[in-house]
Write a protein that binds this DNA or RNA. Structure first.
Lengths: 223, 223
DNA sequence: CCCGTCGATACATCCGATGTATGGCCTCAT
DNA sequence: ATGAGGCCATACATCGGATGTATCGACGGG
């Protein structure tokens, strides 16, 4: 194995074993390079790679640190990878989202508190009667993110965030051509919120399914 | 933004825009570096980072190529990230798997063909009466992978593969302390296979849920 | 006590040189 | 004519050093 890959594995090992904890600072480049037995250039390649997937955080003039390693950082790495996939796999991503989103909504139904419900309602109200496509998509993303956060599973939250990215992008690209898509989306959001307010788990799950399915159907017809 | 990050974005852009297609060969280091306006060392950092997440494939003495970009490569990058998460988040990963696995099993129920069913049965039969923990875990992993593959969604398949990794690892670490865990696992596998054979979607989904839930319960009690 | 300056530190970037693995071509024996 | 083997050009791998630049903390003036 190449020295750089070795270095990646060693740094990974130091973190996984607990020798390096989240927030810890790594020895400076030259020292770490000497310690691992390679040149600074090669070490930098390893550090850069781990930095791309948010394992390390390098700050010029300061040092290199281990990130929080929150599952949330999984999101960014995931969405980066997801960006490389073309339209033909977007439907597969959406199919996965169709599985996760209703489940997350159902989980949220039992856990979401009144303050969060009010915040959701306020967010929907904040959207004007004739929103732009960008506004609508941003609102949609935020609406679902808040609900999933209420489900209390950060892995699930990050995953859905990463999966929603490409869908959203596809939607913006295509420009939401369907006439009634806007009003239908808003109506479905209201319905989901209503089910959450009623603590009606099955209704929440069903509305979430309908919501994703309608996006899927639209995407399939325009793709 | 740093020159290396710029280079990463530019290379990403070349791939996403279609200027570079899967399997294409990149210009050699020195040329690409000149083209992007940076040094070879900095370019190498960018290439190394993209290589870690399986976007690029560098072959010494040959050249640097764009990988197939199959969703399957998402798997490896994901599992690499997942490795960094400690036991306390394993339950969250398992909760997500508990959502996905039953859905995938249900999808497979409608699509799996007889040959695949026979292969599943043969695989279960191949396991001896007193398998080692490693054998059992490997069998479990393979069993579920085959089913999920039959579901026909490569994104879902890769995702579950990545999620199953840490669970499996935790299971091996803990050594499957529960006495009847082995026989119960085998029994549940048989039940899932039986439901698939009967084309009984709801039974398949339920058995898959029970299966994951039992792992979850066990993990929760030993953690 | 607050704020601006200055210097030490550490990463950012580059250059040039050498090592090494790969693939293809060429030669030679059969 | 064909196949095996070796030779060589190519491209990545790795290194060491030099210089630029951002950050943080100490110090001193207002």
């Amino acid at each position: 194995m190449a020295v750089t890959d070795e270095a990646i594995e060693k740094i990974k090992g130091m973190i996984v074993s607990g020798a390096l904890r989240p927030g810890d600072r790594l020895p400076k480049e030259s020292e770490l390079a000497a310690e691992l037995g390679l040149s600074r250039n090669s070490l930098r390649e390893a550090v850069r790679a781990l930095s791309l997937i948010r394992i390390l955080d390098v700050r010029q003039g300061d040092g290199t640190y281990v990130t929080s390693l929150d599952p949330q950082l999984l999101l960014e790495a995931l969405s980066f990878v997801v960006d490389f996939h073309r339209d033909d796999t977007v439907l597969e991503f959406l199919a996965v989202r169709r599985i996760l989103e209703p489940a997350a909504t159902a989980m949220a139904c039992a856990r979401i508190d009144d303050a969060a419900l009010d915040a959701l309602g306020a967010q929907l109200d904040a959207l004007g009667p004739r929103p732009s496509v960008e506004e609508l998509v941003a609102c949609d993303l935020e609406f679902h993110r808040r609900i999933v956060q209420a489900a209390g599973n950060s892995v699930l939250c990050s995953l859905l965030d990463g999966l929603s990215g490409p869908t959203t992008r596809a939607r913006v690209w295509r420009g939401l051509t369907q006439e009634d898509a806007v009003s239908r989306t808003l109506h479905e959001h209201r319905a989901i919120l209503g089910a959450l307010r009623d603590r009606d788990v099955e209704a929440a799950r069903s509305w979430a399914t309908v919501h994703i399915a309608s996006v899927e159907q639209w995407l399939r017809s325009t793709l």
